[in-house]
């Protein structure tokens, strides 16, 4: 198989574009797709300060690498959830990446801040690791972005992440979640805007890009994600993609084009400042403080 652009041996075939490409032209193609996403959704400008939330995996490291290569002002944030060996390993990949590309990296460790890892809090709250993980990450990236005056938080969500969540939310008709599945969420009070520049790329493409660019990334999966319903959605969509290449992209594009259908039912919620941490919350005490500052919340008579 030959590269469509130069005739050299192809490193990969992109089935949704029916496009075989060599290493050089594939990497160029991926970077163009990221530039297009940033442009199409007016995500950020060169002079803005970007906080990239990294996990040590292929997506967040590829995103950091590309944004840095494109000349954006990038800093990294890693949140160590204390999931034993898995967190130790992912932290090492993040530290090595930051060192190799001379990027600033801030690490927040649950164990160092709160004396125990995420599983300890699951036992205490009867919540699943996955629901606490999402909440903890959102709390810290919003907090760091606000306190350290970043303009935008960028995450490594890719097309597969978006369409699997989309399918899951459509199956459950959770319309209030649907309207939030956007490539860019605007700034709202203390919450900085959130961007997903990998929105046009599949997981296979980001993994291939990271590999071909010499980025070392963690291939081990979080031990708690093995049975995640999210993964089942991804497998189903990939089955369809295999027989009809381009389905995932057209599904997501169609969603964006028809967003107005879901926006009609959008609940307008008024956020207030959490009484304990001061960050935006639906309730007087935010979910993070209810979990991590339980005693204080109790003393305030709020739980």
């Amino acid at each position: 198989m030959k590269c469509r652009k130069c005739g050299e041996k192809a490193a990969i075939k992109l089935y949704q574009h029916n496009l075989p490409l060599c290493r050089e032209h594939f990497c160029e193609f991926i970077e163009e797709r990221v530039k297009k996403a940033i442009h199409d959704f007016a995500m950020f400008e060169k002079e803005e300060k970007i906080l990239v939330v990294i996990s040590g995996g292929k997506d967040s490291l590829a995103l950091s690498y590309i944004l840095n290569k494109l000349g954006y002002d990038v800093s990294l944030l890693y949140i160590d959830l204390g999931i034993d060996e898995y967190s130790d390993n992912s932290r090492v990949f993040c530290e090595e990446f930051a060192r190799k590309f001379a990027l600033s990296l801030k690490i927040i460790s649950l164990k160092e801040e709160w004396g125990k890892g995420i599983r300890g809090f699951c036992r205490q709250t009867y919540k699943s690791v996955c629901s606490l993980c999402g909440m903890v990450k959102r709390y810290y990236f919003n907090k760091v972005a606000y306190e350290e005056e970043f303009d935008v938080v960028a995450t490594g969500h890719n097309l597969d992440d978006m369409v699997s969540a989309l399918l899951s939310n459509i199956l459950g008709w959770r319309t209030s979640y649907l309207v939030k599945q956007l490539p860019l969420l605007p700034e709202e009070g203390k919450l900085k805007k959130k961007a997903k520049p990998l929105i046009y790329l599949t997981e296979r493409e980001t993994a291939a890009y990271a590999f071909l660019s010499g980025i070392s990334f963690l291939r081990e999966e979080c031990p708690y994600s093995r049975d995640a319903s999210f993964l089942r959605m991804k497998h189903l969509l990939n089955e369809i993609e295999m027989s009809s290449p381009g389905t995932k992209f057209s599904f997501y594009r169609g969603f964006l084009e028809n967003l107005h259908l879901f926006r009609k039912n959008e609940d307008k919620v008024e956020l207030k400042d959490c009484l304990l941490c001061g960050f935006p919350s639906l309730f007087e005490i935010c979910s993070f403080c209810k979990t991590f500052r339980k005693e204080e919340a109790k003393n305030a008579g709020k739980i």
Binding site: S55, G134, R204
Partner: peptide, 12 residues
């Protein structure tokens, strides 16, 4: 062969 599909919490 490297598996490239990852899970993770939707709110990540």
């Amino acid at each position: 062969i490297w598996r490239v599909v990852s899970g993770g919490a939707p709110g990540d």
